[in-house]
């Protein structure tokens, strides 16, 4: 009962924050709000007992993505560009997609249903045997690192490649910007010299 109320309160704050993010056109404010959004969702994960997801959310959502978004703003603009297109068609697409997704969830088993397919097949095997087979105290860790080891390795490789790509692109940009700044400095120095010559 109490946990349900806490969940409802957290969800309400989450939705409020989401609307605030959509409404705000000040991009720094949006970054701050999305940091708070990730904090709120992590709290929600903790109350829903998904502690591992909350851990990931802490590292990725609150930490790295804020820094990444700030870096992006540093390279681009600080304010949202106002677009005055017609909003009817996107709205329709969103509403229809949302309705289809909600329709899809109607067939899903209830939250925490012991007879759900996900609870019957593999989960008991993992829960019962992982201590003997893998000997790692955390079941989720043993699933990620051992039962699905290749899968995890592939994911890590993808993320690593993406990271290297981003770093390459950004370092190129910074280099160009630096040379621009140097050019400006040289220009101003030359002007000052010319002015001095003009005075004497």
């Amino acid at each position: 009962m109490i946990e349900t109320l806490i969940n409802i309160a957290l969800f309400a704050m989450l939705i409020t924050t989401a609307f605030a993010i959509v409404r705000m056109d000040h991009l720094f404010g949006v970054v701050m709000l999305s940091g708070v959004f990730s904090l709120l969702s992590a709290m929600l994960f903790v109350t829903l007992d998904a502690v591992d997801v909350a851990f990931t959310e802490a590292a990725v959502g609150a930490g790295i993505s804020t820094v990444l978004m700030l870096g992006t703003i540093a390279l681009t603009a600080r304010r949202e560009k106002r677009v005055n297109n017609r909003t009817f068609v996107p709205m329709l697409v969103c509403v229809v997609t949302g309705a289809v997704l909600i329709y899809g969830t109607l067939d899903m088993p209830n939250f925490g249903d012991p007879n759900a397919p996900a609870q019957i097949h593999v989960a008991p095997a993992y829960l019962n045997d992982s201590i003997e087979e893998i000997d790692v105290p955390n079941v989720v860790t043993s699933i990620l690192a051992s039962y699905r080891g290749y899968d995890t390795m592939g994911e890590t490789a993808v993320v690593f490649t993406a990271g290297i790509g981003v770093m390459l692109i950004l370092s190129g940009l910074r280099h160009r910007r630096h040379s621009l700044r140097q050019r400006l400095r040289l220009e101003s120095r030359r002007r000052r010299k010319l002015a001095k010559r003009g005075q004497t």
């Binding site: 109490i2 701050m32 109350t47 502690v51 851990f55 590292a59 609150a62 930490g63 804020t66």
Partner: peptide, 28 residues
């Protein structure tokens, strides 16, 4: 919340959050 649900073992996450939050603020 850990104490409310009588499982205060989740404090590791709180510890992690304290660290991450500080890093985020300083970066900003």
């Amino acid at each position: 919340i850990g104490f409310l649900t009588e499982r205060p073992d989740f404090l590791d996450i709180a510890l992690l959050y304290a660290l991450i939050n500080f890093v985020g603020t300083i970066a900003i």
